[in-house]
């Protein structure tokens, strides 16, 4: 077997942001289901939270390449 352990490390590192993104959208869906009018207000907030949580995954992705 050949390959870079970085890929495995990045896979492990992506678990955290993955859970975070799931939680954010779960909360967003919950909010909209309870109060459909609040959708316009919640959407930018949800996307913003998604982008911030995703930043960690992105940093891991870049480091997996840089440290390779």
């Amino acid at each position: 077997m050949e390959g870079s352990l970085n890929a495995v490390g990045y896979g492990l590192a992506a678990i955290g942001p993955a859970i975070a993104v799931g939680l954010i959208f779960a909360a967003y869906i919950n909010g909209v289901a309870r109060q459909p009018e609040s959708r316009g207000l919640l959407q930018p907030i949800a996307i913003l939270g998604f982008a911030l949580a995703e930043a960690l995954a992105i940093l891991g992705f870049v480091l997996a390449f840089v440290l390779g």
């Binding site: 982008a51 995703e54 930043a55 992105i58 940093l59 992705f61 870049v62």
Partner: peptide, 17 residues
């Protein structure tokens, strides 16, 4: 540091990956 770094890397990494 964090804001410009993540703003650039997010777009780059999503397109690249």
């Amino acid at each position: 540091i964090t804001r410009p770094l993540t703003l650039a890397l997010r777009l780059f990494a999503n397109m690249f990956a």
